[in-house]
Computed example of a mutant assay.
Amino acid sequence: MTALAPTVTAPGDARPRRWGRRRVVGVVALVILLLIAVILSVTFGARDVTAADVWAGLNGSTDSASSAAVAKRIPRTVLAILVGAALAVAGTVLQGATRNPLADPQILGINGGAGLAIVTGIAFFGLSSPSMYIWTGMLGAAGAAVLVYAIGSLGRGGATPLRLALAGAVTAVAFSSLTSAILLPRTEVLNVFRFWQIGGVGGATFPTILQVLPFLGVGLLVCLASASALNTLALGDELAAGLGARVRTARLIATGGAVVLCGAATAVAGPIGFVGLVVPHMLRLLVGVDHRWLLPVSALGGAVLLTLADVVGRVVARPEEIEVGIVTALIGAPFFIALVRRQRMRAL
């Protein structure tokens, strides 16, 4: 999807009004879908529940197994919404900042870097506090982002979209192998984090959510504040600089917000992939390429996708569960292959 320069519309042109209506309808539809996803997430799972059980669980009752199941699903649903929104916004920002349609926290190795840092901290430094997981995850995500960009910048031509995608894929594989090498000889660590490696929200608790919420909030605010800068970067570095934009500063700030979101989300839910790839591309068709609309709408879309993916993982293999990271991979891998095969998807 190539970036297009802004076009001047003639007086009375209906295109802005048409886009405006489409955006409003799209936002309303996503809000309705999110409400439906929340209801499904609270209602469906390994145990069937009634409306009375749902009401009791919402009131905090755990007197019966069904109401206790509902009470456990509530923080799980909240975490799925937050993580889905964070990953979708991070993917949108990374695609805009790098002008790379293949950019995604998982594909670029950022989630893998956060995961490797957390596992290393647990295995060798005895990390046990969720807040330390978050800080460690953000440091790992930042280090991975720097490493991928450095590798992708080697040689002539600098950091092209294809080089960044290849460098990210190689780095992600390397981080995954290193993580496995650390975990396999350490049974006690492996037992705790073998499901976390896949990515899931099943262990959500409100104390954990409250600890990660400030980091997600800061990252989201930074990304939303970068919307206008991302619109300018989409015109190309030279034209953006000609318009007075500080290209490197804008790219650094936007990427920093995405790294905070990736690190925090990975710390609490594991390295969930493809949400940041699928959602931005789908929603560009709905609201266009203006990041002032695309970023908040991507947050809604990511929340819907991850919440529904979690519901699917709970239902299709009852009474067992399929971790949400596997479900998003099944959705995102074919999308990624189709995206790579499109010849014109070389830069945003």
Rank of each mutant, 00 (worst) to 15 (best):
L306W: 13
A88W: 00
G57R: 03
V260E: 03
P16Y: 10
F124Y: 14
G113V: 08
L294N: 04
L33W: 02
G313N: 04
V173T: 09
S66R: 11
D63M: 12
E320K: 03
R251Y: 10
G158F: 06
V146R: 12
A150T: 12
I331A: 01
T7E: 03
I118M: 04
A338Q: 10
L116E: 00
G236W: 00
A174K: 04
L87N: 09
Q197C: 14
I122N: 09
Q211F: 07
I151L: 01
S298L: 00
G84F: 11
G256M: 04
R18D: 09
G236R: 09
V311W: 05
P280W: 05
V287I: 11
T328Q: 00
L30V: 04
T43C: 12
A56Q: 09
E188M: 07
T249E: 07
A123D: 03
I322A: 01
A267S: 15
A241I: 15
A229C: 06
V340S: 15
A241G: 15
G12S: 12
L147R: 13
Q343T: 10
N59D: 04
R292M: 11
A159C: 10
W293N: 13
M345S: 13
L116I: 05
D237V: 03
E320G: 06
E238Q: 14
F193C: 06
G242Y: 08
S298W: 03
L35Y: 04
G155R: 07
A258V: 15
A114M: 14
Q95G: 15
G168V: 02
T255S: 05
D237K: 10
A88C: 03
T120Q: 06
A37Q: 03
I32G: 11
F215Y: 15
A165E: 06
V27T: 10
H291Q: 12
R248V: 06
V192C: 11
G200V: 03
L233N: 03
G157T: 01
G152E: 00
L348Q: 09
F336D: 01
L230R: 00
L34M: 06
L58I: 02
V212L: 03
A227I: 05
V25F: 13
F124C: 14
P161Y: 00
S131Q: 14
R156A: 09
L306F: 10
F175W: 04
T50A: 12
P11Y: 05
A68W: 13
T328F: 02
